[in-house]
């Protein structure tokens, strides 16, 4: 039943993302059809578009993350929504805290995967000219996108242990912006940027799998998840 609870908690967020992405895709495809015909995209333009295409998936991962146990302080938003009190009900059930967090995290992660697959496919359907890859590259792209977006998901999950939603989303976005800034100024080694393989460094473009970045992404996800569990276990309500 914790799966059911997690679904009830996330369904409106998921529906909102579907609505928002559909709108964005419609606007983008309409704009593309109305724009005058243009020759092939330059590599920088393609890279920019690929990154722009990937960004919504990070936003989706960040917004769908949640521990299922609200912050002990409640936070303004949680108190307004009466969520802090209901946390006491959740924690009085005969279930361990790691299990509570694990199930909620899994549901959010699966929903992130659905968003990625559905809207990538929609994007390719709307812009078939961008899709000229082998099935292996497409599967590699999905896997890489899922693994890299998971890092942002688990970052957001970690932030959810001490920030309510009103602060968690801007907090995660700020960290993402810092990552971009570090990348733009070349301070960050390219293999540490877990965003690029979802966009401009995707296997669809590079025709190679970024193993080192994937390892970094998985390691970061594991660290964030373990830290989340540790914090949730130690918190008092």
């Amino acid at each position: 039943m914790l799966w059911y609870k997690a679904w009830l908690e996330t369904r409106f967020g998921l529906a909102f993302l579907f609505g928002l992405f559909t709108l964005v895709w419609l606007v983008a495809s309409t704009g593309a059809r109305l724009a005058p015909a243009k020759q092939a995209l330059k590599p920088q333009e393609l890279a920019f578009l690929a990154d722009a295409f990937a960004f919504p998936f990070i936003a989706a991962a960040i917004s769908l993350a949640g521990t299922g146990i609200k912050t002990p302080s409640g936070g303004f938003q949680n108190q307004v929504k009466g969520l802090h009190g209901s946390t006491l009900y959740t924690l009085s059930l005969p279930v361990s805290r790691p299990k509570l967090v694990g199930i909620r995290a899994t549901v959010g992660l699966l929903e992130t995967a659905v968003v990625i697959v559905v809207f990538t496919l929609v994007g390719w359907w709307l812009f078939p000219e961008t899709m000229q890859n082998t099935l292996g590259e497409i599967l590699a792209h999905f896997s890489v996108t899922f693994i890299c977006s998971s890092t942002f998901y688990f970052l957001s999950l970690f932030l959810a242990t001490f920030l309510d939603d009103g602060l968690r989303l801007p907090g995660a976005m700020t960290i993402l912006a810092i990552l971009f800034a570090l990348d733009a100024t070349k301070i960050l080694p390219p293999y540490l940027n877990v965003f690029r393989p979802m966009g401009s460094a995707s296997p669809l473009i590079t025709h190679a799998i970024p193993w080192i970045t994937l390892t970094v992404a998985l390691a970061a996800s594991a660290v964030f998840f373990l830290a989340t569990i540790k914090i949730v276990q130690s918190q008092e309500y």
Partner: peptide
Amino acid sequence: IQIRSRMGFVTEDKELYPY
């Protein structure tokens, strides 16, 4: 966990899931 499986708790603020 065993204790919680054998007891019921009614909180002071009576808050439950709003959704």
